[in-house]
Design a protein around this nucleic acid. Structure first.
Lengths: 200, 200, 200, 200
DNA sequence: ATCTAAGCGAGACGGTACGTCACGTCTTGGG
DNA sequence: CCCAAGACGTGACGTACCGTCTCGCTTAGAT
């Protein structure tokens, strides 16, 4: 049977207040605004309550971002897969070119990869878009819009590499800043992937 | 016409001791080990001396990394440019797959992009390899190992995008950790770039 | 006519467990070991149960000491009253020269004098010995072992002062520590009281 | 030669501000008002500065009391020593019957006897009056106002016991509260000491 | 050969935030 | 209505670093 929970149950109100305050402070002051003291004061919550759920400010920030981030589902059902891929990449770029994008990158770079929360964070924030992209990429390959000149048994590995080459440039520009991260870049990337084989 | 400097000149000894201590602490304890207090104590230096040169711990860490990082010059002179590209990408991957790689990513993500030092850091740590890669990529294109099916006037833009697609995946895997960052990955990336056009 | 008590009656088991745990913690860690949390955990009792009986840690400590302290009754029946007085003062000194003695002094100094419990504590811990001493002192005076050269109507006031001068030095040395608090001191005090009048 | 002091010297201003604030908070809120946070805020001083000088709130309180307590020197030069003794005892009683008196008792009871500061505190607050009293008592004995019927070699021990019997009752009443601590009590004590030997 | 101004190691300064502890209260399910 | 359990908001703890400031002492070009 389920374990009996003794004692006063944890307060959903407190947890929500903490996440809301964290998110708000994150938007207002960036990552450095996320101090346990500030969050506690802003959420009218005791510091120990925060520590009961998250063990440091990084985890708290990741949790708040995860809680608030919309799960932007794929919304272009019947279109051409290559266009859909462009569309989706534009959306990813749009997310990460905002100030929050850099903070998310800091969080991911700083996170202890072994905790459940940081895995979940990466999964939700990064890999979700990658999974969506994979479906579109496979469709594009099946439709012969993108060619994969490798033996059948290595196709799926090649697909993964292509996904890295689609989304990787976003983070490259985010970190390095050698060029602007805008929506045209999405088209450029997909065109490079397809266009090198295109007769036109 | 140089400004006449009165008073005691700044001490090279102190500056070197600071950079050495910073680098050592960085290796031993990671970025969180770089506190002004620890560096000052370790280098037997006053805190104000550190602040005279660098305005916070991030800048100090970047300076120490820059000072210690070998300028690994292109060493494969006459080889096939595609192989040279693979070789160089392997070298980049080797650098960033070490623990320091993650710390460098944190530094770049956290850095204030407007300071000279952070520009120099990005330039030395990231863009240098990109510049080397560009030369090799151009050679590969001229040798027809890699095809670029775009009008002449857009070739150079396409080359930049290709560079993003070569180096970007490294940082993508570094941040996201969805797959290992090893040397085979270098080959995969270059193969994807060439192979999609390869007749074979 | 007793008020009808509805609901579950208070648990003697819980009360005893609390007092036992308090006393044990007091011996092990001193007064600072008496925290409501520690006592509750040690006694497997809810904190509100403790608060139902005692309103703070001081009261709890006093209650535990009172519950555990033996009511050392006068055991020397037929002896010479002066000797009996010495004997009893030795016993008092023996009690207060132990580590607990200092803690009792802290408790008394810290206690809110207006509560019933702190009155009871003082009564049991301090005034009981004083009352025993008074009986012996009166006997000694009646036997002319101790002289009181004051008018009859002021005799009882003088006796009270003498009692203060018998027991007071114990606490003086306890607090001030200018000299050891040992059993010889008992004899010295009583001798000073009697001896000054003794012709030799 | 004197040790060279390196670094910025400690600030007398800060130290004084801390002691003043501590004393003020002590008068306003008693011992429980002496929190490091409150003192730091009130004195406009960082908490670490307080810890640089005193290792806990008790030590701080003792230091503040010592700093502020006037060294009330013996002021009655030519009078009869027995009267002078009464006068001095009244002064002691007056000090300890104020609210601060109880707090001083708590401090002394709580203090770690092994530190220099707590020794100094006891010395200044308690033993100073005892030393003054000893001089007066010796004078009174030499003047035959007080008799000591013991062999010469035990006279000084007897004097110490008498001092304990003079000042001890003050702390006895302070802790136990079985009777009021007022100036009449001073006369009663001295009268008991002399009167028992007085022929009258 | 002084003078003088900046740099030096050292370390105290006023602060901010940390992560923990205990407080006294409240809220569960169960007796 | 009491009980054990344990979460709650609160507030103080003692510590770590921050970035600045003051010391006495070099150090070296200008006087």
């Amino acid at each position: 049977m389920a374990a009996l929970s003794k004692g006063r149950p944890r307060s959903e109100r407190a947890k929500n207040a903490i996440l809301n305050s964290t998110y708000r402070l994150l938007k207002e002051n960036g990552l450095s605004g996320i101090t346990m003291e500030a969050v506690a004061a802003h959420a009218s919550v005791g510091k120990p309550t925060i520590y009961r759920y998250w063990k440091n400010a990084n985890e708290l920030a990741m949790a708040a971002i995860m809680a608030k981030t919309k799960q932007h589902d794929p919304d272009s059902p019947g279109t051409d897969p290559v266009n859909a891929l462009k569309q989706q990449l534009r959306s990813v770029i749009s997310t990460f070119s905002k100030p929050a994008g850099r903070q998310i990158a800091i969080l991911m770079a700083s996170a202890d990869n072994n905790t459940e929360l940081s895995k979940a964070f990466r999964n939700q924030i990064i890999l979700r878009s990658r999974d969506q992209g994979r479906a579109l990429l496979i469709a594009a390959i099946e439709d012969r819009h993108i060619r994969v000149n490798v033996p059948q048994k290595r196709v799926s590995a090649r697909i993964e590499t292509m996904l890295d080459m689609i989304y990787g440039p976003v983070f490259y520009r985010l970190l390095s800043g050698h060029a602007t991260l805008d929506k045209k870049f999405a088209d450029e990337i997909i065109d490079t992937l397809t266009g090198s084989t295109a007769e036109e």
